[in-house]
Amino acid sequence: MSEVIEITVYRLDELSETARDRARAWYREGGFDDDWYDAVYEDFQRVAEILGLNLKTRTVRLMGGGTQQKPCIWFRGFWSQGDGACFDTFYAYRKGAPRRIREYAPQDSELHRIADALQAIQRRNFYQLRAEASHRGHYYHEYCMAISAERDSPSWQGMTADAEDTMIEALRDLARWLYRQLEREYDYLSSDDVVDETIIANCYTFTEAGQRFG
């Protein structure tokens, strides 16, 4: 036999502080949009293009049955020692990269440093260096990128002794930079103020104890 049960539900700002913390925890655990990092990925793709990286892509199936090409970027975070970010890419010299990256991100000294390092090693090798990075293993951090470099010289001239190590470190530094951007975005989106705004905007309701109701 069915019965009607009445229950009082509350908006976030009507809850006690303890119940409000529980409501925030619910949102952080499952309320995040799957694409919360899209803006960071878009920014990284622009940075990569400026620096001379041609990110590899993979085919992703869409819910409607179609497919879409997505950049080969991966990350895991943000709580374990092995967390990080990595990407698959081809790299070649891009003229004016140090100037262009400063125009795009004038306050980001780390990107400036990476662009300068790539420019310097390219100059010592007559701008003929190329590199490829591919993900390997089951983790996602800068050391999960297998990186190789070569010199595309018409006279078969070899790379300078420091060329490969410099390029490997620059690409790994870029992966570290990407991870910091993702972590910063996640910290912002999961802050109390932003979580509160999102919960209120979506009109979520809760029990008196802070459990999600509707």
Rank of each mutant, 00 (worst) to 15 (best):
R99K: 15
K95H: 07
R24H: 02
G82S: 01
A115D: 09
R212S: 06
Y204M: 11
T8V: 15
F126Y: 08
M1I: 07
A85M: 01
D38Y: 14
L15G: 11
C203H: 11
S109T: 15
C144V: 03
R130N: 07
G66M: 09
I147N: 03
T59S: 09
L118A: 05
G77N: 00
F32T: 02
G30L: 09
Y27I: 08
R20W: 06
C72L: 09
R124G: 04
N125G: 09
N54W: 02
T166C: 14
E49L: 14
I168P: 01
D13M: 07
E29P: 05
L53H: 00
A23P: 08
L182K: 02
R136V: 14
L55K: 01
H141Y: 07
V47I: 14
E164M: 09
G66S: 14
K56A: 13
R136N: 07
E183P: 01
I200F: 01
D34C: 02
V9Q: 02
R58G: 08
W36L: 08
E132Q: 13
R136P: 00
E185P: 13
A48H: 02
Q119R: 13
A97L: 06
R20A: 15
Y91I: 01
I50G: 03
G84T: 02
R100E: 11
D38K: 12
R124M: 14
G31K: 03
Y188N: 00
G31M: 00
K56S: 12
R22N: 15
R100P: 00
T57W: 05
L171P: 03
A115W: 04
A133I: 02
I101M: 11
L53I: 01
G77Q: 00
R136S: 10
E49F: 13
V195S: 04
Q128F: 00
Q128R: 12
I7F: 05
R94A: 15
T207Q: 11
W36N: 04
V194R: 08
W74G: 07
R11M: 09
W177D: 03
D173R: 09
V47D: 04
R176V: 10
R11N: 15
R94K: 11
T205H: 06
P106M: 09
W36Q: 04
Q211S: 13
S153W: 05
A115T: 12
Y104S: 14
S191N: 00
L51H: 02
R61S: 15
L171A: 01
Q157Y: 12
R24Q: 03
H141A: 05
I200A: 04
